[in-house]
Write a protein that binds this DNA or RNA. Structure first.
Lengths: 228, 228
DNA sequence: ATGTGGATTTGAACATGTTCAACTTTCAGC
DNA sequence: GCTGAAAGTTGAACATGTTCAAATCCACAT
């Protein structure tokens, strides 16, 4: 199950070719319809070779995930360097997620369910995928910290992680969305990003102090205490 | 893929026996480790016969889900007929979920991921599992309506569905919980049920009127408009 | 040039979910 | 009790993810 790193020029070529074929096929046919044999065949390599570099079909999905993350990060870079308004930054970032993922809409369901499986090494709550998750959370930290919004420290601490979770929720909604141009998802994004920013500002109200403290305390406790 | 209903005494016996064996094996060995062949073998029936009554292994999970739901409903019946305080009813109900599911903790991860797959017929957002989901949502409607809490109509309308979602979240947390006696999950339940009840009462604050309206409108829109 | 050891590649073999056409059993109507 | 159609049963066959021991390749030291 160890992830084999190529140690030869030939190996690098093979690994890259297999990954390429896999990404193409995932997009063309979806996750289930893409067989390990078809990946090997398109690569021009034997079945066993694929398993030399990717311990399982799921691990190919992890690369797929990394791939879309990089596309996403590149897509929002201009926005993040230009815009200062938090709501606008957040809206643009989340919109970019679904736009970036659009070519993979048909595949996304299987992938989502694969990743959600706690037994999967790809589960973002721990395991191989953790570094990549941390990268995504960091991206949301940038979305927040690069804005001109003044966020109370206790909220700012937990906000990126919450926004990552929120992004997951939007993606799950998007998977089910069959509306033309995925307009419904975009509507939901616009409405919810606005709501989030508004609720953050409301969190300063004295009546909400108690609940805010409890909620943030709970989240912090969950994140920091091991196992669970 | 049609779900075959037994039309013979012999058929009923077979179906019941297969289901029994499956439920036992799921508990004993987990979902993946239980093969269709092992189910057939324990039942004393051929492999093909299992597929006569259950179109797929996943459909056996649906029965498993129904089974635990019935255990759960039975477990909380006394509480619901006795207790009037909403927080207590809610806490008891959610606690009972994880207590009821405790024997299946090891299996739950696979099952959760199976069910979460939008492509699965078992996905609760549509398909074969919808009737069962509606039953569970109804249970939460009873939890709310049988309490002495006065809930504004717009909230009351959406609350049961939200509580069902909340229960899903708790279950997902519980799957990861490795603490002795699953104490962490119970702590989180106590804290969150309390928070929920408190937030419902806060929703009447004038400052929150706008957000409340928007949130409920959004949820309603999502639920009622088809597809998505 | 040649041998060596590790990296890479191979393809057969295995396990398991699923399908299906042929076979057997059941039972309602006579 | 007979009969024939419907219901139930069977096991072989298929597709696909995965494993693994053996074969091949290749860079490098000698």
């Amino acid at each position: 199950m160890a992830i084999e790193v190529p140690k030869t020029r030939r190996g690098e070529t093979s690994r890259a070719a297999i990954l390429n074929a896999a990404l193409d096929l995932f997009q063309e046919r979806g996750y289930e319809a893409t067989t390990m044999r078809s990946i090997a065949e398109r690569t021009g390599v034997s079945l066993g070779s694929s398993y030399h570099y990717f311990p399982s079909k799921e691990h190919l999905v992890l690369e797929f995930y990394r791939h879309t993350h990089e596309l996403h990060a590149a897509a929002i870079a201009p926005l993040l360097s230009r815009e200062k308004d938090l709501a606008t930054r957040l809206r643009g970032t989340i919109r970019a997620v679904v736009v970036t993922c659009e070519p993979f809409h048909a595949v996304a369901g299987s992938i989502f369910s694969t990743v959600a499986n706690p037994a999967s090494p790809l589960n973002p709550f721990g395991g191989v995928a953790k570094p990549l998750r941390d990268e995504v959370v960091q991206l949301y930290a940038d979305v927040v910290s690069g804005s001109d919004a003044r966020i109370p420290a206790d909220i700012a601490e937990m906000l990126p992680l919450m926004l990552w979770l929120y992004q997951m929720g939007i993606l799950y909604f998007w998977i089910f969305d069959r509306s033309p141009g995925r307009l419904r998802t975009l509507e939901v994004i616009d409405e919810t990003t606005d709501l989030i920013v508004r609720l953050i500002s409301l969190a300063n109200l004295p009546v909400l102090r108690g609940s805010r403290k409890r909620i943030l305390g709970l989240i912090k406790d969950i994140v920091e205490r091991p196992q669970g």
